Simulated scan of single mutants.
Amino acid sequence: MTATRAASIGRSIGAAALYAVAAFWVLCSFVATVEADNPEAFPGILDKDEAFGAFFSVSLAVLFAAAAVALCRRPLVSKAACTLIVLVCVYRAISVYGQFYGT
């Protein structure tokens, strides 16, 4: 195996790991809003904490997805995965936006 091939495999594995971390943060954005359904179960949580947590999580997910695109050499597959993650993050941001203002 040549050094170029080994580097390509390493970048692909690194990009896959970054996409896994981005998917984890998308999942965390859903978990951050669970306490909004039952606020009595979480007495220390403020009203706007879950929306902030969701925005923070989707921001990190987009950051990791962008890093994976920069790392990977397969542009079509990488850009498709990044687009999917960004679309889910935009959906989450829109769905929790009203919680900041009480609407």
Rank of each mutant, 00 (worst) to 15 (best):
A70F: 00
L87V: 12
V58Q: 12
Y91C: 09
A80V: 13
I94K: 03
G53I: 06
L63R: 06
C72L: 02
R74H: 13
S78N: 05
C72A: 13
F52K: 15
N38K: 07
N38R: 08
T83A: 15
V86F: 10
F52D: 09
Y91R: 10
A68E: 05
V77F: 03
A93W: 12
A51T: 15
V77M: 03
F56H: 13
F56R: 15
S59M: 03
A41C: 02
A65N: 00
A81P: 01
D47W: 06
V58P: 12
P75K: 10
S59C: 04
A81R: 13
S95R: 15
R73G: 12
A67V: 04
A68F: 03
V77A: 09
S59V: 02
G53E: 05
S59W: 00
L84F: 08
L46W: 06
A67Q: 07
L63C: 11
Y91H: 13
A68N: 05
S95G: 04
V90L: 15
K48R: 13
S78Q: 04
I85G: 03
V58L: 10
F42Q: 08
L87Q: 07
D37T: 06
L46N: 10
D49V: 08
E40P: 00
V77H: 02
S59L: 05
E50I: 06
L60I: 00
G53L: 06
N38P: 00
A41R: 05
F52Q: 09
R92T: 11
R74E: 13
F56V: 15
C89Y: 00
R92D: 10
V90K: 11
D49I: 05
V96L: 03
P39K: 05
L60H: 01
R73V: 08
D47K: 13
A41K: 04
A80G: 06
F42P: 02
L63P: 01
A81S: 09
I94N: 05
A68K: 04
G44S: 07
I45C: 08
S95Y: 07
F55W: 06
A65G: 03
P75E: 09
T83P: 03
E40Y: 01
V69H: 03
A93T: 15
D37W: 07
L87D: 05
F56K: 15
R74N: 12
S95H: 11
V96M: 02
V96W: 03
P43V: 07
D37I: 09
E50P: 06
L63S: 12
A93R: 11
A70H: 00
A66Q: 14
P43W: 07
L63M: 14
V96A: 04
